[in-house]
């Protein structure tokens, strides 16, 4: 029975995520796209929960569902020109080729996925306990240097983003 419940839950959230993602790229209204993006992020977070990744799910909600989604909405707001919201997210001329390329990629992935026998693993019942402790253990031992570098990267990105968005005044 647990299988069926787990399967149904997965199905619901997976469909939610994929549908939201589809709507992100298919909606003609960029604001709808942004909102569906947030929904998709939440769907991914729920998938993390299903994979016992509690910490990552929290981070996903906070960073993606909160910060990134809001930033994107802000970006949309700042660049939107009045009166064209309905047509604010058009496809380019290459849309058909893009679709073909994406489809080809998907077929490739599917081929890899289904032809690889090592990956046919079903869930076992032994779920993981809370992951925060082990993540922190890894981050502070083995991945300490990348961790620090990531901090520096974020700082630099922030400074760069501020400078870019603010614009450089002509010194002369």
């Amino acid at each position: 029975m647990g299988d069926i419940v787990g399967g149904l839950v997965f199905l619901v959230f997976a469909l939610l995520t994929v549908f939201s993602a589809f709507m992100v790229v298919s909606s003609k209204n960029i604001i709808h796209s942004a909102l569906f993006l947030a929904l998709s992020f939440v769907g991914v977070a729920s998938l993390y929960v299903l994979m016992d990744a509690d910490f990552l799910a929290a981070v996903q909600i906070l960073v993606y569902g909160g910060a990134v989604a809001i930033m994107v909405v802000f970006g949309v707001m700042l660049t939107l020109r009045a009166g064209k919201v309905q047509e604010s997210n058009p496809d380019s001329r290459n849309a058909v080729f893009g679709a073909i390329a994406a489809l080809l990629t998907f077929v490739t992935f599917a081929l890899v996925l289904f032809s690889n026998e090592n990956w046919r693993v079903l869930a076992d019942q032994s779920g993981m306990p809370s992951t925060v402790g082990d993540i922190s253990w890894l981050l502070l031992t083995k991945f300490m240097v990348p961790f620090e570098v990531a901090a520096v990267l974020l700082t630099i990105a922030m400074i760069g983003a501020i400078i870019l968005a603010k614009g450089v005044e002509d010194s002369k």
């Binding site: 380019s92 290459n94 390329a101 080809l104 490739t108």
Partner: peptide, 23 residues
């Protein structure tokens, strides 16, 4: 001169190379 086209070409090429090498 369009980044999307370049990206597409690069990606499709990688996929094709992957297909050739793998299968």
């Amino acid at each position: 001169g369009q980044l999307q086209v370049y990206a597409m070409v690069i990606f499709v090429s990688i996929v094709i190379m992957f297909l050739v090498i793998t299968f």
